[in-house]
Design a protein around this nucleic acid. Structure first.
Lengths: 339, 339
DNA sequence: TTGTACGCGTTATCAT
DNA sequence: ATGATAACGCGTACAA
């Protein structure tokens, strides 16, 4: 076994050419075929591994991107949303041998921002943006670090993001409830102040506006099963005949409350959710909901950032991923839609 | 607002001292109180952020550690084991402002190893080691990169690891089954070839050895609910009066099969699991199992690596975390233990 | 106490 | 096509 060469200089003396030439062989510069072959032969033998830190210092690029997932720590490790996102991102990055640095929500936003901006370890950042006004997001956008947001459509002309159209999707759900004859439609909101929560509420209102329905029944939730349970309580007291929950988890909570009241789904109360998580189809009755492909949101965010880094035009890129209304028995009972 | 200074040199000219002195102020070298104050005053104003890449190249350390989680991608984002581990690790690292680079299982082990070893971006590695013979683990251990293994007790004198004593814990479970009068005790193993699977099987055998019980009933599983269901089928055919499943998920599968056979738990068949996942206490009847604190395994692995990096003595550190036998109704029925 | 100067391992810009 | 050589930004002996 040949001793492993650690630096370009060692390789240079080993091959008898200059360090610059070895570098060219590795990075694909103009080299004579003969010397190229000679150097490559040595390269095979000595298991040379370029020092990426040195390379970064010289080239200004690291081949590593950062991922910021700032959310209540508990949700981060409970809600499949985050792991699906991570799955999509890491998978895409692996294709291009791009490394990933992770910032979770253990630090304050201020500290996280500081760390990211001083760490010149990353070429760009993917940042989940769940709340409306986020100093971390603002800080990233006003820095010169290429950034892609997930879940937040910014009106800033400089921002790149990947998102789903929560508002339109919610509008579709509520329009569906109207179409099946419901008029007293309640909404358990997602967490107020979050982008998705507010947008879904907007969609609810817009659908009713368009349908000419005036009465609104709104209870604030926070995406948890419990808040769905409690929100349903409030809405039932108002005499609703349908509940659009801002998440499937809250819909599950509503199911429980509705059942406790001795009411039937959908005969007495139609129920719809949002997310199409795994258990949505297993509920009794199966839940009408909105499918959003979280994993592909992760993929797209990574792809978007890579493109941003690749071409040097800093023009922002915006991606709105499609959603799909999944109609199940919680709104249409046993009725055959196409019958 | 003052323009932000980007380098030590800029700070030097800004303050009128040399770059070295500025560096000393930042890193705590010997500096005269007067100049120190002067420099710090400027430091406040200009939002200087040290370039960690350059610092790394000069100092040889990066302040970043790597985490390798190589497992079937599906399990990675389904099984709470991984997210709990990640939670413990990231939380601990955040305390010391240590960064985290993540390698998931999207690349082959060979490629992953190559990436890690050439990336001089990390000072050390935390690596989950689930299977017995893992080229990735071997590669890391034979490199000069400080490495902490999770879930794998290596006999190599150089290896550091954090693990639970699967063998003893399993022995305790089976001893408990013996103690409540069972003699035909079956075991649905975890995935063969994995450290935990093999160790838990060893514990099963050791307990029966000690109890003088000769008959063994073993069905191979793979930690999934389905394999527990099928393993129970085999064991029931052998006429067991107790089933020790290598995981709670498999125990849940066994419950289902036992119920299909019209048998009662624990009256006809006592059942025990391993992990004490969330749903274990909610099963009917609640499941006797082994609690292992996965989150603290994550914490300890991070702490161990940090210590390894801190003190320069390369002496390996081994941590075996305690487990706890949680006795519930799936083995003892309604009997009061202390009654 | 402070400043000078070298080194870390690359990439990139010059000449040659 | 190739080889010096200057950055890249910082730490740190060493000298002053």
């Amino acid at each position: 076994m040949a001793r492993r060469a650690r630096t370009l200089d060692e390789l240079a003396t080993l091959t008898g050419v200059s360090r610059a030439t070895v570098s060219r062989v590795i990075n694909g510069g103009p080299v004579a075929p003969a010397t190229k072959a000679k150097v490559q032969e040595v390269l095979q033998r000595v298991e040379y591994r370029p020092n990426l830190v040195a390379r970064s210092l010289a080239s200004g690029r690291t081949g590593v991107v950062g991922l910021v997932m700032h959310s209540p720590a508990l949700a981060l490790f409970t809600d499949p949303y985050w792991s699906l996102l991570l799955a999509g991102i890491t998978e895409t990055l692996a294709d291009t041998a791009t490394g990933l640095m992770l910032w979770l929500s253990h630090l304050s936003k201020r500290d996280t921002l500081d760390q990211i901006l001083s760490t010149h370890f990353v070429d760009g950042i993917i940042c989940t943006a769940t709340i409306l006004d986020d100093p971390l997001v603002d800080g990233l956008l006003s820095s010169d670090l290429p950034t892609v947001l997930i879940g937040h459509r910014r009106h800033d002309s400089t921002a790149s993001y990947v998102d789903v159209d929560n508002e339109s999707a919610s509008e579709d759900v509520v329009a569906h409830l109207v179409q099946i004859g419901r008029r007293r439609i309640g909404h358990v909101t997602g967490s107020r102040g979050t982008v998705s929560g507010e947008d879904r509420l907007l969609g609810y209102n817009r659908a009713l506006d368009r349908a000419g329905v005036e009465q609104r029944f709104v209870a604030d939730g926070d995406y948890t099963i419990e808040s769905g349970y409690e929100g349903a309580e409030q809405l039932l007291a108002m005499g609703v005949d349908a509940i659009f929950a801002g998440s499937d988890a809250m819909a599950a909570g509503a199911y429980q409350k509705i059942r406790e009241h001795g009411l039937r789904i959908p005969d007495d109360i139609a129920v719809a959710g949002f997310d199409d998580v795994e258990f949505a189809a297993d509920l009794d009755p199966p839940l009408t909901t909105v499918r959003q492909n979280v994993r592909s949101q992760g993929e797209m965010s990574a792809r978007t950032l890579l493109r941003l880094l690749d071409k040097k035009d800093g023009s922002p890129r915006r991606v709105i991923l499609p959603t799909e209304l999944i109609i199940r028995q919680s709104t249409v009972g046993g009725v055959h839609l196409d019958g």
